[in-house]
Design a protein around this nucleic acid. Structure first.
Lengths: 156, 156
DNA sequence: GGACTATCGTTTCACTTGAAACAGATGTCA
DNA sequence: TGACATCTGTTTCAAGTGAAACGATAGTCC
């Protein structure tokens, strides 16, 4: 029995990443739903609109890394909830320019500090500069996995 | 316009965690599927069996953080693929003891070094001790989010 | 102008997910 | 023993997912 046979799932980075991320996602999703009645996808759309209003659905796709079907559904939900309005771009009728309604802006301005507060609670216990160090490492992981995807793994 | 209105999604930890984890998950899932014909859930079951054979489905639930429906489906898939065999525990007929078949063990022993290699590639670029530092920070995050769940957030 | 290709956003489709219902087996307590 | 609660693993169900098909618009080339 060599070392190769003693594999510890608990020490496997992709596994730990998945478990923790799912917990974080669930915790945040529940709060957004309970307190504001929106999903994480909808919250991301609002977050982008907060900085880049007005913007098309495709612009949101590029900024959120969500696929276009997911964005389409999130936008539909926000329209139904009266948080967004949309208008056809006169210069290109394929584009739907999205913007906050008054209610949408109020919701956005209420969520932002709440999201920040939740993030602060979440990152308590990471120690000095922990949040920044974590984001740096996460960015390096992201670069690497994108390179893996692009390369098709080379070894295969 | 105060600072409260300038929210950057790209600097929001839960968002970054979700995006990167999804990329990692997809990259690994594709390789497990292409090279071994199994899903991530099935791989986790194999990984647990590698250390804790024989074990019941419920034991796997506890060790993998997957819910029992997911484990049930993963086990069914592995049984169908001929990688596992199961027998009723004579002492408690509710329990199904799961163990590798010969083929299952061969598959396990082939996947483990491959998974390790993929993790090594993934963590290239994290710098000195980067993997260990990342896992430490991730564990701290995990502790915190579990505390948030338990507390129901206190602030609400 | 007309044919062809590309882009935008929605919808369809097959699949996955977790919560809940469920059936079977075991434990508990009077 | 019998009534009842608990535990294990499977299945059902409704909701969510991304890939792909789709209709509509725009750009390109002849």
């Amino acid at each position: 029995m060599t070392d190769d046979t003693t594999f510890q799932l608990d020490d496997f980075l992709p596994y730990r990443l998945s478990v923790t991320m799912n917990r974080v996602s669930r915790a945040f999703a529940r709060r957004y739903a309970d307190e504001f009645g929106i999903s994480i996808a909808e919250w991301r759309v609002l977050a982008v609109l907060g900085s880049f209003q007005p913007i098309s659905s495709n612009g949101i796709v590029e900024k959120t890394q969500m696929d276009k079907a997911k964005v389409s559904r999130a936008v539909a939900g926000l329209l139904a909830a009266g948080l967004l309005r949309r208008s056809v771009d006169p210069a290109d009728q394929r584009l739907l320019k999205l913007a906050f309604t008054a209610k949408g802006r109020r919701t956005y301005e209420a969520i932002v500090p709440r999201a920040r507060a939740l993030e602060t609670v979440l990152t308590q216990g990471l120690g000095q500069d922990g949040r920044a160090r974590f984001l740096t490492l996460l960015a390096a992981l992201d670069r690497q996995v994108r390179a893996m995807d692009q390369a098709g793994d080379l070894a295969s």
